[in-house]
Design a protein around this nucleic acid. Structure first.
Lengths: 346, 346
DNA sequence: TATTTTAAGTTAAACGTTTAACTTCATGTA
DNA sequence: TACATGAAGTTAAACGTTTAACTTAAAATA
């Protein structure tokens, strides 16, 4: 690969002149500039960023550490991060921990998780990143690592629970509130919830929102209408039966997958979703448009979460930091489809 | 961030000694080595890769250019590339073109696509990558770009059609063959195909495989049993009706999404999949396990495609290149689920 | 004892840039 | 004519490493 020296030699000028011409820093005649540009083009010159960044002592690069890139929420978040980076002339480095592939559960095997995170962080720091984004649900386990102490750090998708570190995520409680309010607005008062496991913060927060919506609407909260599933389809199927027995006219399933179980249960028991039962899911995954009825759901602003994360990090890096810190909650939105709308059949 | 000079000063030795100690190159006493290691640890020293790679004149880094990271097949492929890189001590740089987000269709707007690819390649080359992987279906439009001429290049997921450039993809024809053979093995002879658009190579190759399987089994090919959809659910619904009218006992839907339309059609017309009709999809997406019946399908070895792509590229880079070139086809596998199996209901 | 070998270190150049400080020389001004 | 100005360039140091070539002195060998 051609370098400044090669160009300088051909043009018969010094390296400094070439550098100034190529970077448009002035002090070079127009004639010489044009000649240099033309030679650079001919040689297909591309600046060596290892040299440039070494000298400039900055990389304009941030690092993304993701627990697993194959999880459905990771790519849109990365996409959003990339969009903001591009806008600001930053680049990003991606380290995919491949936790699922490696069979590491950070909850059970803290040491392995720490080791693998440390390795990723070390690489990033060696690459002189200006800041780091951790994408995954175990950021709180990572916070105390010495390796991350000398860089800007931001958590995305989940809260790291440390008020001094920005966590950019979506507002589970508000989403739960909105889902319930939406169903209440359609006239429902007996609204069942198929929640996630009681150990899940997502689940608890969504539930709290649901309860607040009931309260605000003067509807008493009946704990028997809240059942905890395991996020999997079959638990949706099973719990649907119990809720329907209990007389609910609407179900808020805390993810789309369990809602598919509900749909199947209803079909088998001749309950027509839309007319006999309103159903709303959570996540807005692909299945929602493919199922029949199509599934109303809560859309998580994944792209925005990524975009906002990058913007907060880069603002911090550039010192124009607002004092944003702690949890930053983005709003979800309701996507209305057939499962909450009665569609008359032909 | 601490550097070699800082450590040298504290240890009272020269920079070279520190470098040798840290890299285990010998010529340093054990006592000194231990002291240096300890200081490095205290200072949280991390080598500056901009300096190291500049001096070493190699980066042990490859570049991945992906058309859109949010497409379902990209993340597992990237995962596979990452796995091989890690094994070989390589890193990768990711440039996500965000084609869908930017609204660029490479088929319609070649200039925009070229520009955006050139930008990505220039950055990668500036980062001194040793090679490049293009992940997406428009590699053939990229091949001629001058910017990529001075590096190793490999296409993944789709063929770039140039026999001198390795393309790592899956074997559509074999998959079509296997799907048909599987259904034939279950005793079906009237097997309908819901194909993709006739302009799609995937579709044509899968169809060819299907035809060969019929031929090998002595079953005449009836063109009326092949109908072209648009990959979307509704075309599956519609074409299912036509095929069932034509008397098929099995349907090979060339993607899972259209198969969902088939399932819905059958349900509405009291056709029981598994007993009255066998159905097989393609892609092995998440819906296959969530639908009822669960959908038999063809699994694409995405991880392996990535892994193999990286291995071929890195082998080339390191000169231990086998003469592998042109299309390298990996085999898909059949995933058997309820849609090709009669499950007696309770 | 004189010489060679070896271990443990140092020196300095190099990688490809950037950039502050300097030089040169044509032109304008007093 | 003498001097200041400014444009167009050059020189050289620096960024943080690596590494070949060198030095020194102690240990091994003859």
């Amino acid at each position: 690969m051609a370098n400044l020296k090669d160009i300088a030699q051909i043009a018969g000028v010094s390296i400094a002149t070439v550098s100034k011409a190529l970077n448009g820093l002035g002090g070079v005649s127009q004639e010489t500039t044009e000649q240099i540009l033309s030679i650079a083009r001919d040689l297909n010159y591309r600046p060596n960023l290892y040299a440039r960044n070494l000298k400039r002592r900055k990389s304009r690069t941030i690092g993304i550490i993701t627990e697993d890139i194959t999880v459905f929420n990771a790519p849109p978040i990365i996409d959003g991060i990339g969009a903001y980076c591009e806008k600001q002339g930053y680049h990003y480095l991606l380290e995919n921990l491949r936790l699922n592939n490696l069979g590491i559960d950070p909850a059970l095997d803290i040491t392995s998780h720490n080791n693998i995170v440390n390795e990723a962080v070390d690489f990033m720091m060696s690459m002189q990143v200006d800041g780091l984004i951790y994408l995954g649900c175990h950021s709180h386990k990572v916070l105390h690592l010495p390796s991350i102490q000398d860089t800007q750090f931001v958590c995305t998708y989940c809260s790291c629970t440390d008020p001094s570190v920005p966590s950019i995520l979506y507002d589970d409680k508000k989403a739960g509130y909105d889902a319930a309010k939406f169903l209440i607005g359609q006239g429902h008062t007996l609204i069942g919830v198929i929640a996630g496991p009681p150990t899940s913060n997502h689940s608890i927060n969504r539930l709290t929102g649901y309860q607040e919506a009931l309260f605000d609407s003067g509807i008493p909260y009946n704990p028997k209408l809240t059942l905890h599933g395991d996020w999997n389809r079959d638990s949706g199927y099973e719990l649907a039966g119990q809720l329907i027995q209990a007389g609910v006219t609407a179900i808020f399933s805390q993810n789309d997958i369990m809602a598919m179980g509900v749909i199947d249960y209803c079909r088998q028991h001749n309950i027509e979703i839309g007319r006999d039962l309103a159903l709303i899911g959570f996540d807005n995954r692909e299945i929602c448009t493919v199922s029949r009825p199509t599934l109303s759901t809560i859309d998580i602003p994944l792209f925005d979460i990524g975009y906002t994360s990058a913007s907060i990090l880069i603002d911090k890096i550039e010192g124009k930091s607002s004092d944003l810190t702690g949890e930053i909650l983005l709003e979800c939105s309701i996507v209305e489809r057939e499962s909450t709308k009665y569609i008359k059949k032909d």
